[in-house]
Design a binder for these strands. Structure first.
Lengths: 120, 120
DNA sequence: CAAATAGTTGAACATATGTTCAACTATATC
DNA sequence: GATATAGTTGAACATATGTTCAACTATTTG
């Protein structure tokens, strides 16, 4: 073996092979962790958190959300697209106006659980 | 008024002032949304999601986590610091070895709820 | 049909974030 | 005390992300 010390995948023998194998067997597939992280990541931005909260209270159009948050319509629209892509919000068109609302109770539950956590 | 069209804070009259005020009254303080987003953001990375899941199954040292995830100790340690700062994991020292475990059931519940969501 | 308005979009920009690398500390062992 | 190992840390780097800006579409109204 070379004498070069490299900080790569813990070349060292396992500290506790049993424990590692125990967890390895229970580990979820890569795809699950990707989805999990993606879901949390979308909620993990203050602007999107505000939008989600606002829509949990009331169906709103883009302009109203922009007013509420003191942001540009463009910025809000970009974020709404992210939420749309993740199926977190849905929308309906009424003339020129596009009304957004939450698509999924699941997300609202998740959101509320975290809200209790940080508000306690 | 100038004729220049600028895409700033929706200068346009409100679409529905009543709705906006309704939500404005119920709106949480800025700080709450910051905390909320910060909490979600920490969970919103695949590496950290894996670490949290692993620690929900078994107390592990840094080297074992690195082995499990196929990552460098350094990368894992950096992420553990993030989780430590958010009080999501705690640790105990035993000689040279540092054992990490989840600090808070609250986070595990949040995590599991999202896991059900993406696994269904 | 022209003007106004709600909303969307892509490019540009600044900032945030995750991993690597190298150097470091602390503990155990020879 | 020298060496090896577990873990941490800061800087550097590449990439991801959020907002702005300007241009665009679509719908309504004069």
């Amino acid at each position: 073996m070379s004498t070069v010390k490299r900080d790569e995948v813990c070349e060292v023998s396992f500290i506790n092979k049993k424990k590692v194998n125990f967890v390895k067997k229970r580990m979820k597939p890569e795809r699950t962790f990707q989805l999990l992280a993606e879901t949390f990541r979308v909620l993990g931005d203050p602007t999107r958190a505000k939008i989600i909260f606002a829509l949990s209270q009331q169906e709103l159009c883009v302009c109203d959300i922009a007013n509420l948050l003191g942001m540009s319509k463009s910025a809000v629209s970009h974020q709404l697209r992210v939420l749309r892509n993740m199926r977190i919000v849905k929308y309906r068109k009424e003339g020129k106006v596009v009304y957004y609302s939450l698509d999924d109770d699941h997300i609202k539950n998740l959101f509320d659980e975290c809200l209790n956590h940080v508000e306690e």
